[in-house]
């Protein structure tokens, strides 16, 4: 009985080894921007069996629109901060009559309300995107009458910039991307037009179709930025 079991076991092992050694398997992978094709080729003697597996990327987006808000930076504060000039009009350099006229007024604190940006980029390659960015920043301050508290003058400051943008994605995954960008265009503070720019040193976007982003940079959009965006023009009808 024992001998019969042993012989049966040996037969199974030999058959398995034999069948494996008789097969030759090959795998070929071809990737491009639109899909990945995996070919499994199994050769058994003179015959070969080819199976093809096509793996489509979940999403191919050619466009994205994003909106963000940024914090104040040194460059933006040049135009949005009056550096205390409106703080107190009773300067020693004015005449007494002028000082007395201003004595019945006071200015409210100057508040920075943020820098808001809207941008569109086209994804030419996975690593290269380009488009345009519009940024708007403002700070508010009012002059009020001391006795009646009515607003006498609005001393708000504004900054609007329009810049072409180039973005370089140096780390790409479907849900997370790291990038840097450069923008160069013009800016107006409602009094003059100046050449202006923006640099994103490091940016991170997270999400697929709807995504959020955080950036660190300097220029027209502020130092720290955060926002959200939407990618569209997906190719490949992935039902997932």
């Amino acid at each position: 009985m024992k001998n019969k079991t042993l012989i049966l076991l040996l037969t199974v092992v030999v058959t398995a080894v034999g069948s494996v050694s008789a097969q030759v398997r090959e795998k070929k992978i071809v990737k491009d921007d639109t899909q990945t094709v995996i070919k499994h080729i199994t050769k058994m003697g003179d015959e070969s069996i080819v199976t093809k597996q096509i793996v489509l990327p979940k999403r191919i987006d050619k466009h994205d629109i994003r909106v963000g808000v940024g914090s104040l930076g040194l460059m933006t504060s040049l135009f949005l901060d009056d550096w205390g000039c409106y703080g107190d009009l009773d300067l020693a350099a004015t005449s007494f009559n002028t000082s007395l006229k201003n004595a019945d007024t006071y200015s409210t604190p100057r508040w920075f309300v943020g820098i808001y940006s809207l941008s569109y980029t086209y994804h030419h390659f996975r690593w290269l995107q380009y488009g345009a960015t519009v940024s708007f920043g403002a700070s508010t301050c009012k002059t009020r009458h001391t006795l009646t508290n009515e607003v006498l003058e609005n001393n708000n400051l504004y900054m609007l910039s329009v810049m072409p943008t180039v973005r370089f994605v140096w780390y790409w995954r479907e849900k997370v991307q790291l990038y840097s960008s450069v923008s160069l265009g013009v800016m107006t503070d409602m009094y003059e037009i100046l050449p202006w720019g923006d640099v994103t040193l490091v940016g991170c976007s997270f999400g697929r179709k709807f995504f959020g982003f955080t950036e660190v940079g300097f220029g027209a959009s502020g130092i720290f930025r955060i926002g959200m965006g939407y990618r569209f023009d997906a190719a490949g009808k992935n039902k997932k």
């Binding site: 703080g87 409210t108 604190p109 309300v113 700070s139």
Partner: peptide, 11 residues
């Protein structure tokens, strides 16, 4: 992102 840049004058 909003912050106070200056204190303003005194009433």
């Amino acid at each position: 992102s909003s912050c106070r840049l200056s204190d303003g004058g005194i009433r």
